[in-house]
Amino acid sequence: MSDKLSKYRSKRDPKRTPEPVPDAPSPSPEGNAFVIQEHHARSLHWDLRLERDGVLVSWAVPKGLPADPGTNHLAVHTEDHPMEYLTFHGEIPQGEYGGGTMTVWDTGTYETEKWSEREVKFVLRGERASGRFVLFRTRGKNWMIHRMGSAVRDPFPPLSPMLPTERARLPKDVAAYAFEFAWGGRRLLVPIDGGRTDAAREHPWLRGLAESFGSRTAVLDGEVATLGGAEILLFYDLLYDDGRALLDEPYTARRAALEALELTGAHWQTAPSWPGEAGAVRQAAREQGLPGVVAKRLDSPYEPGPSKAWLFVES
């Protein structure tokens, strides 16, 4: 009988890595376990592992499981892993194979509908991952993974920003608005999916932000401004969060969801907002040499394009 873990062991030194390195396969009693691990290695990816004949047959999925049947994701077939990997999490030392942080993203059981050398059809039953999937081989180690059935998240919203209407005076009903600085920067919408963002093509420093989201999807609205001589991205709205479109939610709900993300980094942060504080915010903008303030109705949805629910008032 061939040693299914020989390749796995050849890549690891138990004296240098905390990973389990058993001498032989050890199947679980059920025989149908799975685990998905979030792996922050040289590049973020997710490892899908399905129990089969005493080992975990494994694929590295750079963008995670697809949420939409219309989009297939790459899945790279890797070496079989031991059953002990079902619960493994920790830091694999840099310089070692797969060096980086690994956490258990989900675990559970699965049902096999088909298993061949070129196609694996299965149903996942986990806490975060569920549904029918098929893995199909394309070339060499490269496979694709496809979700069967319905989409499990809202489609991404159109990437068109909501724009304020200019006014000479502050609104009279100040209690109905939140007041924010107009930073005088360049508007930027940041879509994040699979730990990546297209916005990083122009701003490479956003790769760290996108990776920090892991499998969480989002579309953030903000402004690239220069503060203290440094370029920083100030976020002030959230259009999409964890598979759910927020455009129809009121400003107060979107703002609360944005603040819950606790976005703070060397190149990005959440812009401040002050409900009802019209005069003080405008005075502070004037003292700091900013163009003005933006008044945003607390009950307003997100309306791409010019909107009277957002008002720009010069400082």
Results as ranks from 00 to 15, higher is better:
3 D>M: 10
5 L>T: 09
9 R>S: 03
22 P>E: 08
26 S>R: 15
34 F>N: 10
44 L>D: 10
44 L>C: 07
44 L>M: 13
46 W>E: 04
49 R>M: 14
51 E>F: 10
51 E>W: 03
55 V>Q: 02
59 W>L: 05
59 W>F: 12
61 V>F: 03
69 P>H: 08
76 V>L: 12
79 E>T: 10
92 I>A: 07
93 P>D: 08
107 T>V: 05
119 E>V: 04
120 V>R: 11
121 K>D: 11
122 F>M: 12
124 L>T: 09
128 R>N: 13
129 A>Q: 06
131 G>M: 11
131 G>P: 07
132 R>P: 04
136 F>I: 02
137 R>Q: 15
144 M>G: 00
145 I>A: 00
147 R>T: 06
149 G>E: 09
153 R>D: 09
157 P>L: 03
157 P>K: 05
158 P>C: 05
167 R>E: 14
168 A>I: 08
169 R>Q: 15
188 L>T: 01
190 V>F: 01
192 I>S: 02
193 D>T: 10
203 H>V: 11
206 L>K: 00
208 G>C: 00
210 A>D: 07
210 A>W: 03
221 D>T: 10
222 G>D: 01
222 G>Q: 01
229 G>S: 03
233 L>P: 02
236 Y>R: 14
237 D>M: 03
244 R>L: 12
275 P>I: 04
277 E>C: 11
279 G>H: 13
281 V>K: 06
284 A>R: 15
288 Q>C: 08
291 P>F: 02
295 A>H: 02
297 R>W: 08
298 L>G: 07
298 L>C: 09
302 Y>V: 05
